[in-house]
Design a protein around this nucleic acid. Structure first.
Lengths: 159, 159
DNA sequence: TTGAAAAATGTAATAACATATCATCTTGGA
DNA sequence: TCCAAGATGATATGTTATTACATTTTTCAA
């Protein structure tokens, strides 16, 4: 449960917890946890999957929270910047962070069939990548690790 | 030189070599190395950097090789499919493979300042990601590893 | 407490990236 | 030589993301 998220669970509780944690973190850092930002995080926590900016915008729009793309992108930028949400590069999509209480390098397992996404962690400079960087003098600031494949559910069901 | 590509080098030679290797590989695999596909690979080898599909299309168009997006995307799909080119997810861009002669999991060092891209390699299931995958029953098929940061040139020059 | 600066929002327009569809042409192999 | 698969031409459209600028709200210190 702490590393992989393919299993079912009731998460009304975890949504509330995560929102409360985000609110607290914003308070201590003096960041504005505005209604749109809060709602975008809540949407991503509730859906518990990767969503595109325009999917989110559709919901915001239906709720009268804004209808133009920058509304969604600004909120997402804020949430990504502050570690509440991760961007999944392969999918051009966003997912709520599963471990928002500590700094980490996220890594994702992405099912190419059902698009489920599980988050785990990895080390910043592990193995050959870190070695290559330090050899060449490259200074790593951020690492994207995304594995594509089949989740446990889909492994059995496909050709 | 085999892992990192931030250093300068004369590469008229390596362009020719890489094209010849691609041609040979297509021959043995019975793939059609058509003029557009060849030219797209050549462009990426010559520029020796990540380029967007529309950048490439601009060049093709100026040369009378086609002016509509599918022309570029089809050629890129072919080249990616067959391991001659990699897609850089973070940049929505494409770069010629630096090690086309053997199968590998590419990893990239991407300079956020000058956009230079160096390719190195990594293991498919190294470390915690592989562990999380096998624990949960996720079957990894492809891994994207992209590090963003500052290249040796830019490390010195920025604030 | 109030006023200036910083941050956030509203809104319109457009840029950048990518695919669907269908007709036509070329190639390789039976 | 003919067929089937693969490649190309061409049009249209879908999806993702940013620029720009006016306005409002919040913060913070004088």
């Amino acid at each position: 449960m702490s590393t992989v998220g393919f299993r079912q669970h009731d998460h009304t509780h975890c949504v509330h917890t995560a929102l409360a944690q985000a609110e607290a973190k914003c308070k201590t850092r003096r960041l504005q946890f505005t209604p749109v930002r809060r709602r975008v995080l809540e949407i991503l926590l509730e859906k518990h999957r990767a969503m595109g900016a325009y999917d989110i915008l559709g919901i915001l729009s239906a709720e009268g929270l804004g209808s133009q793309p920058p509304v969604a992108y600004r909120a997402l930028d804020f949430l990504v910047q502050n570690g509440f949400v991760h961007r999944i590069e392969q999918l051009n999509a966003y997912a709520a962070c599963a471990h928002p209480t500590h700094d980490h390098v996220p890594a994702f397992l992405i099912c190419r069939s059902c698009k489920a996404v599980a988050e785990t962690e990895t080390e910043l400079t592990q193995g050959r990548l870190g070695a290559a960087a330090s050899t060449s003098g490259f200074q790593i600031e951020r690492v994207v690790v995304e594995a594509e494949g089949l989740c446990p559910e889909c492994v059995g069901e496909l050709p």
